[in-house]
Design a protein around this nucleic acid. Sequence first.
DNA 1: TACCAGTACTTAGCAACGCAGAATAGTGCG
DNA 2: CGCACTATTCTGCGTTGCTAAGTACTGGTA
Lengths: 111, 111
Amino acid sequence: MGKLVTEMLKGTLEGIVLAILSVRPAYGYEITAWLRDQGFSDIAEGTIYALLVRVEQRGLVDVEKVPSEKGPPRKVYSLNAQGREYLEEFWRTWSFLAERLEQLRKGGKQS
Amino acid sequence: MGKLVTEMLKGTLEGIVLAILSVRPAYGYEITAWLRDQGFSDIAEGTIYALLVRVEQRGLVDVEKVPSEKGPPRKVYSLNAQGREYLEEFWRTWSFLAERLEQLRKGGKQS
DNA sequence: TACCAGTACTTAGCAACGCAGAATAGTGCG
DNA sequence: CGCACTATTCTGCGTTGCTAAGTACTGGTA
C-alpha cells in the first residue's frame, strides 16, 4: 500500500506481531510471509526482524533456535507471561484509539 | 496515557486532526484543548502545531489569520478539497488496519 | 563442478513522527 | 508590576519502519 499504512504501522505493528505470537510460536521469515499474505504487501523483511529483536530485549518473548531443513536455523519466538500482559495493555490502548476514531468518522459523515 | 499511545498516534494523529477540521475550521490551541478533553491527556502542544504546518505545506488545508480578544492572532485552518480526498484515503487505510487488528484480537481470544 | 533460487537472519543509514522544553507575544486581573 | 491564560514557534531527541546490502545454508540444474 502506501506511506499512510507505513506511518500507521508505527506503534501497531508490534502489537500485531505479539498477537500472532499469542496464537502460536513463530519465526521471522514465517511472520513476514504471513503478513504479506494478509494484505500487508510491502512489509519489509528487516522490519520484522528488528522488531523481534526489540521485543526480545524487552523480555516479552522467549526464543529458541530450531534447525531448518531448508536454510539457516530458525529463531522461533513465543510470547511469555510478560508479553501477554503487555499485549493486554496494547489491546486496551488500541480500543481507546479505535473508539475515538470511529466517533470522529461518524461525526464527519453528517456534515 | 503512556508510550503505547504515543507510538500509535504516529500516523493516526494526522487523520484525527483532519477529521476534526472536516467538521468545522479550528485553530491549534483549540484542537489541542479538545483532544485533551477527549482523553488524549498528554498530547504535546508543539505536536499539533507542527502537524498543522505539515498539512498546510502539503496543501490539505487553507489558513486564515483571525484576531483574538485574548492573545495573539489565531491561525484558523479549514479542510479544502484536496484535504477531503486525503481524508477519504486515510479512512480507507484505517479501515484496512482496523479490520486486520480486530481479526487478530478474535483469533487470539480462543487460545 | 558452478551457479542459482529459495530459505532465514543481520546490519547500517535514512526519513517521518510525536515529545520535551523553552522562547515569544498578546490580553486582562490582582 | 507580576501573574495567569491564550496562542504560536523552534530546537533537539528517541522510537519506528524502510531501503539496501550482506551472510549463511540447502537443493536442483546445466
